[in-house]
């Protein structure tokens, strides 16, 4: 089946088996490995991608469902010149990254939140990131980073 979609601002037409997961299309076929598999059951959020701006667990999504959609992965977040997105900067500066395996999904979930809601309350941050597990950081610095990123993003607008 043909999937015709936009991934990180580039158009793709790919012939995929009907049972292929979006995760495998992106990782194995298109070789963008920033999207991670942590559980394969939609329980950890490591494979989060944004589809038309909304976060999805790509392990639970069939690749064909991306047809006609606009998809963002962590590789598409930094500027073309390599300058980091404010959330990436904030995660780095605030020490919100340890092993980094949850980080791409965590940052994308945070981006989806901030695009909708530039000044979220702490509870709203919790809610938006509640599907993303991090085993290293204890989350405190992640919350701080999302707030710091939000501030920079607000000032840029």
């Amino acid at each position: 089946m043909i999937v015709d979609f936009n991934l990180n601002e580039k158009d793709y037409m790919v012939d995929v088996p009907p049972d292929m997961r979006a995760l495998d299309l992106i990782r194995d076929v298109l070789r963008l490995t920033g999207v991670k598999e942590g559980c394969g059951r939609g329980e950890c959020g490591a494979c989060t991608i944004l589809v038309n701006g909304k976060p999805f667990n790509s392990c639970l999504l069939y690749a064909v469902k991306l047809n006609g959609k606009k998809v963002l992965t962590i590789e598409g977040l930094a500027q073309a010149d390599g300058s980091l997105h404010p959330l990436q900067e904030a995660f780095l500066n605030e020490g919100a990254v340890q092993c980094g395996y949850c980080t791409p999904g965590m940052i994308l979930s945070a981006k989806a939140l901030l695009d909708e809601n530039p000044s979220p309350e702490e509870e709203e941050i919790e809610e938006a990131l509640s599907g993303n597990i991090c085993r290293c950081t204890g989350y405190k610095k992640i919350v701080t980073a999302v707030k710091a990123g939000a501030k920079v993003m607000r000032e840029k607008v």
Binding site: R27, G34, K36, L77, L84, F91, L92, V97, G100, P104
Partner: peptide, 22 residues
């Protein structure tokens, strides 16, 4: 306070974990 020296690879998704290799 120092930023992780391998932090950029991690926040950009460029860090290669074992399962990413081919």
């Amino acid at each position: 306070a120092q930023k992780k020296i391998d932090g950029i690879e991690l926040v950009t998704g460029r860090a290669r974990f074992t399962a990413d290799l081919r």
